[in-house]
Design a protein around this nucleic acid. Sequence first.
DNA 1: AGGGGGACCTGTGCGC
DNA 2: TGCGCACAGGTCCCCC
Length: 292
Amino acid sequence: MPELPEVETVRGGLAPVLEGHRLARVEARRPDLRFPLPVNFVQILTGATIVKLARRAKYLVATLDREDTLVMHLGMSGRFEISRPEPDGAEGSERPGHFHYAPAPDPKHAHIVFETEAGARVTYYDPRRFGYMALINTATLHLHPWFAGLGPEPLSEAFGAQRLKTAFKDRKQGPKTLLLDQRIVAGLGNIYVCEALNRARISPFKPAGGISRPRLERLTAEIRAVLTEAIAAGGSTLRDFAQADGALGYFQHSFRTYDREGEPCCNAPCKGVIARKMQAGRSTFYCPTCQV
DNA sequence: AGGGGGACCTGTGCGC
DNA sequence: TGCGCACAGGTCCCCC
């Protein structure tokens, strides 16, 4: 899936066409994504105004002028595309030449369509259908199971080395596995955990409980750095991900470990070679030489 | 409780 | 060209 930087990029792309806009038409082209869509999904959303579009962890959170909030998760392959029926390009080029663009998504996987009164069409595509949408009562949103247990946002003040010290205490699992746990810190996924551990030169496998405080400080800083850089690059484009306007993120060119098995480690003067190991069912990319 | 493995679903890329 | 397998950015559930 889109991890935190990709979801944040999507949020930033959708906000101008959705925030403050009224949904004139909503279409659910199938009754379910990963889960069944709420009963009356279309009925409740039609005519609603999206007051605010925010992100929490990997969720998009659209506050409505209704009792409910629209919550969306992109799963592994979810993607939004904005199209504008009216072809008056008065706004100027929305597709500047120095970006690359994703091919048009397969219409077979266009599951949800939102159209605003202002004439923007936002289509949700999701081939694997691991994504999901729900309408959740706004007043009790923070108590909902998807949100109640979430750890702090890694780019917020609430996240820091102390948080990791506490969460890692006495844990025998490697930090790789624990950083993927959204209850410890929210928004990291397989790519950025691999990247942050490599930058911090920490082994993904050794017991997290044994990592010293200074190294946790370093890890915290590298998590923040890699996420910030990725957001600035518009996220990473692997297979499906693209910004809502179709522009491709380009942070994948800055990966130091992810999908770089056999290539040299970037941590000069380390002469190591990136390796891949399956860990808890996921690929872990790391440098066996300098990540100790 | 912690930790591992599989399930969910579809597409793509690779080796034979 | 075609087939079968491995693998994919996430999360949940079941079992030991």
